[in-house]
């Protein structure tokens, strides 16, 4: 019934943060969500596969940096998910 990709606590929090900030560095997401690197990477790959987020890997001098952006598809899917949650509460 709900989008299985979004109906999961970490991923829904992750998208909420990205919607409020447009983009966030991997490190900031990790701190905000209190998850491990591996855990976050796994959630991000799932979202990236569905094109809900865009992961940009860049270098700052010699230091690698990963920035996560939310895509239009991700925003639309999240809006739809919120609508589904609202409908469910109304009907139950």
């Amino acid at each position: 019934m709900f989008d299985p990709l979004l109906h999961q606590p970490v991923r829904s929090k992750l998208l909420s943060l990205l919607i409020a900030n447009d983009e966030l560095p991997f490190k900031a997401l990790k701190e905000s969500l209190s998850v491990t690197d591996g855990n976050l990477s796994s959630h991000l790959s799932k979202l990236e596969k569905e094109e809900y987020v865009l992961i940009e890997k860049l270098f700052e001098g010699k230091r690698p940096k990963t920035v996560v952006h939310i895509t239009l598809k991700g925003r639309e899917a999240f809006a739809l998910y919120i609508e589904e949650l609202r409908k469910f509460i109304e009907e139950n």
């Binding site: 606590p9 829904s12 919607i19 905000s32 509460i89």
Partner: peptide, 19 residues
């Protein structure tokens, strides 16, 4: 579960607004 999800999302989008 749905209520908890809504509350989490609200917490991030409305209460804390942003990082």
């Amino acid at each position: 579960e749905v209520l908890r999800q809504i509350s989490e999302i609200k917490h991030h989008l409305v209460d804390k607004e942003s990082f």
